[in-house]
Simulated scan of single mutants.
Amino acid sequence: MREVAERAGVAMSSVSRVLSDHPDVSPRMRRKVMEAVHELNYQPDILAQALRIGKTLSVGFAVSDIANPVLAEIITGAEKRLRAAGYSLLLTNSEGNAELDIEHISLLERRRVDGVILSLVDEHHPDVVAALRQLACPIVLVDRDIPDGVTTRGASFDHALGMRAATEHLLELGHRRFALITGGPERPARERRQAVEETLANVPDAEHTAYPGGFSVDHGRRAVLEILAQDSRPTAIIAGGNMLMEGALMSLREAGVRLGGDLSFVGCDDLAVAELHDPPIAVVRRDSFAVGDAAAELLLADLEPGSNADAPREIVLPTEFVARPSCAPAPR
């Protein structure tokens, strides 16, 4: 910093004010200092800055399973918004293990991050809840229930909206026997299943069987094998999650089932596999990038007092059904 001050011909205190974005700096002073910074290729000491301003300008993001492409999109949305606000992102991956969630919450706290965004494996796990209650920094939960006694904001999806539309579409095509593959985090799985069951409850001759399990490709594969082994097969299958959809499509292809012919199929999330499949797969779609951006915006409302005083405690984004040829009239 001393060399920058000498090159710019200003006091070290002036350099400090420019580098910390102090408002009481003239445009001429800022220009002189920044020219010297670039000429000397000066890199500010981030740790020293953190000690000086009382902030690390970093945010922790604990992800349940980064192998899920939807979570990758959410991370991208959050990182872009936080970067624009001057924050870096520290990412952890829990690999579907709630015990790792607990370790990562502790790690991020020890790293002195200014706030955390969490897409947890199990937000109801007692030790996870205890860890959340002890966190002193602002929290935003992504698409999860808010546990009792935890002060947090939330950015989520209305999973029921798109799932209800998908079920209604299949009913209009004459389907009455349904199979629903469910699994994954409690909130999305619960909302999806409730939407399907409540919609079918209004149709006297409609019936369904649910196949709950883990949120994995393997569960999707095994559930379809069980479905196809039934004497009276359903005419429509709904896979309540992108990884479940991927596994289900594998088993259906291996069994030689013609989608949109032998039976109809609806998946979740508009991934490449859905559009490139033959025939293209009808899905319940959501804007994952947008929910990441919303989560970051909610966190910034707590990190930057006065930046968004009217920020809500929770933002809920819609989902929508996209009809494609994997859905067709029920076989007669």
Rank of each mutant, 00 (worst) to 15 (best):
S106C: 02
I315A: 05
D101I: 02
C327H: 08
A328L: 03
G60I: 05
R2T: 13
I74P: 13
T92I: 06
T151W: 15
T151P: 13
V129L: 08
E6H: 09
E3M: 02
R144T: 03
G86Y: 06
G261H: 15
A78E: 04
D127P: 00
L300I: 04
G9I: 02
M245P: 02
I237L: 09
S64T: 09
T76L: 11
H219V: 00
D101Y: 04
R144E: 10
P212E: 06
V140M: 08
E191T: 10
V116W: 06
Y211D: 00
Q43L: 10
I227K: 05
A223N: 06
V25H: 07
N93D: 15
G174M: 03
E123L: 08
V10I: 10
V121K: 09
D231T: 10
K55H: 13
R81D: 02
P279W: 03
A50V: 02
E207D: 14
I75P: 07
P279F: 05
A50M: 08
G292I: 08
G54Y: 10
G9W: 01
G220C: 01
Y211Q: 03
F289S: 07
K32E: 14
D231G: 01
A295C: 07
D21G: 05
V322H: 12
P188K: 08
E73I: 00
Y211W: 14
S288V: 01
P126S: 03
T76K: 15
P212A: 03
A78H: 04
M243Y: 02
V116I: 12
P279E: 02
A8E: 01
Y87R: 01
D145V: 00
I139E: 10
L244E: 00
L317N: 09
D269T: 00
E79D: 08
E314W: 01
V10T: 04
A255Q: 07
L108N: 05
S106F: 08
R221D: 03
P204G: 09
T56Q: 09
E297S: 13
N68V: 09
D122V: 03
M250N: 06
P318S: 04
L244S: 00
V4Q: 10
G154C: 15
E297C: 03
